[in-house]
Nucleic acid binder design. Structure first.
Length: 318
DNA sequence: GGATGTTTCCGTCAAGATCG
DNA sequence: CGATCTTGACGGAAACATCC
């Protein structure tokens, strides 16, 4: 009998009959009614998995890869978020037993969708750098969303709100909008205005409210951007004021467009999270079904053996 | 190899829930 | 009560399988 567990292409193989896999707190638990033979092969994708045998042996599988650590952390976080919802909590509590997890910690880690604005002071050109990321056409020009993996800010960093002043080589005099969100889960993104060519100029970002005396610097990593997806956000997305001039309209439309872009971005992230939670929930239900089916089978077998025992003793008495 | 169907993932919209 | 969050529904795109 072979089970796959944990996703991410990982396979857990258990060569015993009537084994059950419980997903308790994202640690795989294998309960086997049989003694695990020496020849059996068990490949466990997750570290800290537990194998329990009928012989009373408990084997803990310990892994040390960084991926395992990261994944456990991430899945734990997801589970904690999931556990906030009453409908999910009951099932998760059943599955996780009495293991309690701190929700407060999770809330601290979750302030990822915070964006702040900053103005730009034009400076001399310092060359062009191309960065991969989604590109948007807006009324105020092209806006590029840069994955945080392409950017590294050295110096002190804090979660959530980041106030940034921006110095760039932009050749126009319009204020430039820099939007920046940061979270611990790698979902940070920068939203930086770019030229028509789509190239990002070399910027220096400095946190305004940095408590450190050393101003952190921004290092822009270069990468190809040929596969960027472009999304067109047209002026139809914003109600136009009939009586206003084009200049007035753009003054009104720009914040609205930016607000819309922000809303869409947040909703995009929310939809991703929602789907993750849904998958997790379904996985929990499936695991619960497996556990209950096995318990049912065990109870039936126990009842059967007790009946046999009763019948045999009854015959002996006669 | 091209056409077609299925599955999966993603972004968006909208409506309801929740929060402050 | 407005802002924000959550989630079901919908459609598009990509990957894959099947058929001719």
């Amino acid at each position: 009998m072979i089970y796959g567990i944990g996703g991410h292409g990982r396979m857990l193989r258990v060569v015993v009959s009537q084994s059950v896999i419980q997903a308790a707190n994202q640690q795989s638990v294998i309960q086997s009614p049989n003694q695990l033979g020496k020849g059996n092969l068990i490949l466990v994708g997750k570290s800290n998995s537990v194998i329990q045998t009928a012989g009373g042996h408990t084997l803990q599988v310990v892994g040390d890869s960084e991926n395992d650590f990261y994944e456990d952390d991430a899945t734990k976080k997801r589970r904690e978020i999931l556990a906030r919802r009453p409908s999910y909590r009951k099932i998760l509590n059943d599955l996780a037993g009495d293991e309690k997890e701190s929700l407060q910690n999770d809330e601290e880690e979750d302030n990822s969708a915070v964006i702040n604005l900053a103005s730009i002071a034009p400076s001399s050109r310092s060359g062009m750098t191309t960065i991969s990321g989604s590109q948007y056409a807006t009324s105020s020009g092209l806006l590029k969303v840069i994955p945080a993996s392409a950017i590294h800010i050295s110096g002190a960093q804090t979660n959530g709100l980041q106030a940034i002043t921006m110095t760039s080589s932009s050749n126009d005099n319009h204020p430039t909008l820099v939007q920046y969100s940061q979270a611990q889960d790698g979902s940070q993104q920068f939203f930086v205005p770019v030229g028509v060519s789509g190239d990002l100029q070399a910027y220096t970002l400095r946190p305004v409210n940095s408590s450190t005396s050393m101003p952190p610097s921004l290092v822009v990593a270069s990468s190809a951007s040929s596969d960027d997806r472009k999304r067109q956000i047209t002026s139809n997305d914003v109600k136009r004021n009939p009586g206003s001039t084009d200049g007035e309209w753009s003054d009104v439309a720009e914040p609205l467009l930016q607000k819309r872009e922000l809303r869409l971005l947040k909703n995009r992230e929310a939809a991703r999270e929602c789907r993750r939670k849904k998958k997790e929930y379904i996985k929990c239900l499936e695991n619960r079904v497996a556990v209950l089916e096995n318990q049912n089978k065990t109870l039936i077998e126990e009842l059967k053996s007790l009946k046999e025992l009763y019948c045999s003793q009854k015959e002996e008495m006669h």
